[in-house]
Simulated assay, not measured.
Amino acid sequence: MTFGCSISEAQARLSYPEFRQWQKYRAKRGSLNWGMRIERGAAMLATLYANSKSQKGGFKIYDFMPHDSEQPMTLEQAMESWA
């Protein structure tokens, strides 16, 4: 998905308060990427199934999400990965 502008253009257009609002939205609602949303739903079902079939349980949703991690990426890390 492309938004029609470069990272530097997006940085110039997006204010820090707006960035923080998007960050809060993503923390509450998850990724804006449809693929990640589908992966999360499938991972949730896999977690429920694995924990119901396992003697020990203890599986986390992130065990079934290869493209996500428990620790959110900081803005600096994101900018570094895009370079």
Rank of each mutant, 00 (worst) to 15 (best):
E18W: 02
A27Q: 14
M65V: 03
W82R: 13
L45R: 04
Q77P: 13
R20G: 00
L32K: 03
R40S: 13
W22S: 00
A50D: 05
E18C: 08
G4D: 04
N33G: 01
A50T: 08
A46M: 14
E76G: 01
Y62H: 07
Q21I: 11
G30A: 12
K28Q: 13
P66K: 07
G4A: 03
L48S: 08
Q21H: 02
Q71T: 13
Q55T: 13
A12C: 02
Q71W: 07
A42H: 03
F64M: 13
E76N: 07
C5G: 01
A10G: 00
L45F: 11
N51H: 10
F19I: 11
M1I: 09
Q21E: 08
F59V: 05
G58N: 05
M1S: 14
I61Q: 10
G30W: 12
L45D: 04
R13I: 05
Y16H: 08
R13E: 14
K28N: 09
F19N: 01
L48Y: 00
I38Q: 12
Y16A: 02
T47V: 06
W22N: 00
A46Q: 15
T47I: 05
T47Y: 10
Q11W: 00
K53G: 02
W82P: 00
K53P: 01
Q21V: 08
S15W: 08
S54M: 13
E18F: 06
R20H: 04
S52H: 10
K56T: 06
F59H: 14
Y25D: 13
M36V: 07
K28I: 10
M1K: 15
M1Y: 09
S54V: 13
S6V: 08
G30F: 14
P72W: 15
K53M: 14
F59R: 10
E39Q: 11
M44D: 09
Y16F: 15
R13K: 15
M65P: 01
Y49P: 04
A10Y: 07
A27P: 01
W22A: 00
F3S: 03
S54N: 11
Q71P: 06
W82L: 15
G58F: 10
S31I: 06
I38G: 04
T74A: 02
N51P: 00
S6A: 02
R37H: 13
M73C: 09
S31A: 11
P66H: 02
W34T: 01
E39C: 04
L32R: 06
S6I: 09
S6N: 06
C5N: 03
W34P: 02
L75Y: 04
G57T: 13
Y49T: 15
H67P: 03
T2L: 09
F59S: 06
S81Y: 09
A10T: 02
R20V: 12
D68L: 12
R13Q: 15
Q21K: 09
G4H: 05
R29T: 07
L14G: 02
S8L: 08
A83T: 08
A12Q: 11
G35D: 13
D63N: 12
G30I: 12
R26F: 15
S81P: 00
